[in-house]
Design a protein around this nucleic acid. Sequence first.
RNA 1: GGAGGGGUGGCCGAGUGGUUGAAGGCGCACGAUUCGAAAUCGUGUAUCCUCCUAAUCGGGGAUCGUGGGUUCAAAUCCCACCCCCUCCGCCA
Length: 427
Amino acid sequence: MLDRKLLRENPEILRDALRKRNYDISVVEELISLEQQVRSLKREIDDLRAEKNKISKEISKVRRENGNVETLMREAKRLDDRLAEIENKLPEKESILYEKWLYLPNIPHESCPVGSSSENNVVVRTWSKPREFNFTPKPHWDLGEALEIMDFKLAGEISGSRFAIYKNEGAELERALINFFLDENKKKGYQEILPPTLVKEEAMYVSAHLPKFREEMYYASEDQLFLIPTAETILANLYRDEIIEESDLPQYFMAFTPCYRREAGSYGKDVRGIIRVHQFNKVELFKFTKPEDSYDELEKMVNDAEDLLKLLGIPFRVVLLCTGDMGFAASKTYDIEVWAPGLGRWLEASSCSNTETFQTRRARTRMRRRDGKIEFPHALNGSGLATPRVFISILENFQEKDGSVVIPEVLRPYMGGKDVILPRKER
RNA sequence: GGAGGGGUGGCCGAGUGGUUGAAGGCGCACGAUUCGAAAUCGUGUAUCCUCCUAAUCGGGGAUCGUGGGUUCAAAUCCCACCCCCUCCGCCA
C-alpha cells in the first residue's frame, strides 16, 4: 500500500510508476477525485462533531448547575440529523477508495530497468560455468524415477498433477537442503521462526497477496483460513500494529515452511517433474530495516542467498528484474536463477525484493526515530532458498553417466556422510 | 464441541453514562542534587487523521480487542464477532 498523500502532493510519481508497470493510469484521476471527496466529507463531519461535543459538554455543565437543558438538547438533536446524513455517505466512498488503493502496485525504484517483459531483465552477474558433459544430461524426472527417489505416478494418484513424492535418498536430500539452508542463514544472523501455514484473511492483506491474488491461494472455507503461498506472509505480520525502536533495526528473520500455490493460469506449463508444483518447501528470509539502509540490505540478502548456491557448487546467475516483470509489492527485485543442464534452462530459485513501506504500511508496522519521530520502516523478503529448483539443479548438474548423482560435499554431513546416490540395485 | 471468566497506554492496574485520552504505580527520557552513582525531587512520556505555520507551538476529530446499536453524551449499557484463560469432553 502506498502513501495516500501522493494523490495530493505528487500524483505524477504514481502515473509514472503505473506506466512503467504497464498499468492503466486513468485510475489516478479517479483516485484523486475520490480522495478529495473523502477528505472534504471527513472535514465536514469533524466540524459538526466538534460543535456537538461542545454542546454535550455544555449540557453536562448546565445540568450540574440544575439549569434547563431543553434548548441545548434540541440543538444537539438538530446537529445529529445533519451529521447522520453526511456520515452515511462516508463509509461508501471511503471503502471504494480503499479497495482501489489496495490494487495499486508498488513504485519501482529508479535503479530498476524499465521494460515490459522478462526480455528487459538484466543479468548482473553469473557464477561458475555450466559443466561440460560427455553424455547427454537427463532431466531430473528421469533421474529421480530411475534412482527411485521420486515418484510422480504415485503422487498423481494420491494428490493429482503437480505434486511430488520424495522417497529414500530423495526425501533425505530434501531434508538436508532445508537444514543446510537454515544453519547457514543462522550464521548470518537470521532468527528462526517456525510458523503456522494456515492464516486468516487479514494477514494475507499485509503481505499484499490479497486482495489481488486470491485465485492463487488455497482456501479452507469451512474455517476461513488460507494456506500460505510463502512464509513471507507470516513474516510480514511479525510486527503488526507495533512500533519498533530505531535502535532495534535492522531485524533479520527466516522461516522454513511448505508453500502452497494453486498455479491457476499456468495450465500445461512446466507440468513435468518439480519445476512448478502446488506444494514445495522454502526457507524464507525477511528483514525490517531503516529506510536509508534498505537497498544495501537488499544487496546483502541477495549475497546471502548466493552464498548457499556457491557452497553447493551450483552455477547460477543473478537477474535484476525490469519494471514490467516485477511483483506487485516490490520496489526492486533480484532473481537468482540456477542452471539445469537436463532441462537446458535457467530456473528461478530465489527472488529477493525490497518492498520499502508497501507491506509495513499495511501491517501498521512503524519505527520510532531517536528523536521520537514515527515513520514506516522498510521490509525485504527473499528466498534462501526454495528447494525444488535447487533439488533439480543438484540432480541434473551432478549426475554421472550411469545415472548416479554425486551429493554436494556440504550436504553430506546432513545425509549420514553419504557422497553419492546410486541406482537402487547397487545400494 | 459444552460451561464459566476476561480483553484499558511500553508494562501492571483503577475506572459510579457527563471537564476521563483515561487515576495510581512501574519503566523510560530530560533536568536538579552528587566528585560520580544509588536514593530523592521536578518535568515530560500513546497513536492515527486533519487544519494552521517556513518550522516549532497551537486548533479540531478519532481511537480503552473489532464492528454495530441505545443516548444530547459510552471505556462504562445492549448485540455480534475475534482473541486469551479455567473446567468438562475429544484427541496426535
